[in-house]
Amino acid sequence: MALDQGLRGPLWFEDPDTMDNVHPASPELGLSDDLVRGLLAWQDELDATYDLDDPASSPGFPSEAAEHDFHARGWELARRVGHELDETWEVTYAGGSPFREVEIPNPSTPS
C-alpha cells in the first residue's frame, strides 16, 4: 500500500518491470467487501487532504495526531490485506512516520 493523493487508489502492484495501481475490488486480489470499503474510505480521507489542481493550497491533516491516526489505520489496513492474500503476495505499507515503509508479514507464508 502506498499513499497516492488524488490518483487511483491505495494499492499498487510492483515487480521488477512494472508498477501499477490495482483497484481494491479487483477479482485478482479477492479481498473481502469490508476491507475494500475500508481501503476506499481511507483513500477518500487522504484525497480530502490534497488539492491535485493546486497542491500548494492543500489543506493537509488538521493536526499531527490526525495524521498519525490516519497512518495507523493505513498500517492496520495493510496488515488486513496481508492476511487476506495468499503466500504469493508480499504486502508493504509505505506511509508517514513512524510507519514509513514496513513489510507486512503474510501469515500464510511458511516460516
Rank of each mutant, 00 (worst) to 15 (best):
R37N: 05
S58T: 13
L7M: 13
L3I: 12
E14R: 15
S58Q: 10
V22S: 05
W75N: 10
P55S: 04
S108A: 15
P10D: 08
G30K: 12
D69Y: 15
S57Q: 10
S108L: 03
Q5T: 11
L77H: 06
L39S: 07
P59S: 05
G82N: 06
L3V: 11
A2V: 12
R73I: 01
L52P: 06
N106D: 02
I104L: 01
G30P: 09
L29P: 04
G9F: 05
T18L: 14
R8H: 09
E45C: 07
D34M: 11
D4S: 14
A56L: 14
V36G: 03
S111V: 13
R80D: 00
S97I: 09
P55V: 12
D51Q: 15
E14D: 00
R100H: 08
T49M: 02
H68Q: 13
D15C: 15
D20H: 04
L29D: 01
D47E: 01
F61Y: 14
L40K: 08
E45P: 03
L52M: 14
E87F: 05
L3A: 03
P107I: 08
F70N: 10
E64I: 13
F13K: 08
L52W: 15
E87V: 02
S26P: 12
E103Q: 14
R37C: 03
F61A: 01
P98Q: 07
